[in-house]
Design a binder for these strands. Sequence first.
DNA 1: AGAGGTACCTGGCAGC
DNA 2: TGCTGCCAGGTACCTC
Length: 271
Amino acid sequence: MPELPEVETTRRGLQRRLRGLRVADVIVRERRLRYRITPGLRGKLAGRRVSRIARRGKYLLFYLDDGCLLCHLGMSGSFRITGGGQAAGSHDHLDIVFGGGKILRYRDPRKFGAVLWVGGEVLRHKLLAGLGPEPLGKGFGGDYLYEQSRGRSASVKQFIMDSRVVAGVGNIYANESLFIAGIHPARHAGRVSRRRYEALAAAIRQVLQRAIRKGGTTLRDFVRDDGQPGYFGQTLAVYQRGGEACPACGGVIRSSVLGQRSTFYCPRCQR
DNA sequence: AGAGGTACCTGGCAGC
DNA sequence: TGCTGCCAGGTACCTC
């Protein structure tokens, strides 16, 4: 499933190849994603030029001349660019055709994604307005996590996966960063020290940056914008490794469920 | 305000 | 082998 590094990898690839291009046509095959794809999208986009592509959490923001296409890949979404000869598959819900013939194709078997046109200031959009700071940006760090977490009884894992606390930390990287920081995922967020939040913030930045450098960690059906699958799961220390040996101490990695999410940790290394 | 639960969807896989 | 049924997983939203 696309996590923040995959989204960032996608953003970089798409920006490199689409910036400055003008939309010629839009083909919507399936409108029912998490939300309905904005009706009349063709009229909104046609003739507009892509000025840049940004990211906010796991949302992709395609800035056009006078508005923004706000997209989310959900669980199984991917973008790719085709030359035009490729026939659309059954899960290829949207094509954005550019002048010159390049096609940006959105595929999403599970339809958890979103493609919405936002005419005004996109960062004030309901889906973005409440997001916490970017984990790789200013405003995020140990002090911030410490202050935000006081008095909170939810587990530290659920806390860092709350998009209002920090944007875009999903299940994989929550597991991995807690392992690196040596913090037990079920520990109450309000009972983690400032010093340990410092370690956790550093771990979150480290795992995300490393995955971005690797081109994105992927488990199943993420496809990079060049159409190549991006399997990098072998670099994960604990995620989906329940019953295996901890790479740090050799003990057995445990799996459990926290907030309806699969959770992996080493009970010896994480307290 | 915070915590917990639910819905959305479908490929993949476990169990029969 | 073939069918059925369950579940993951990100996020918003609802309820308590």
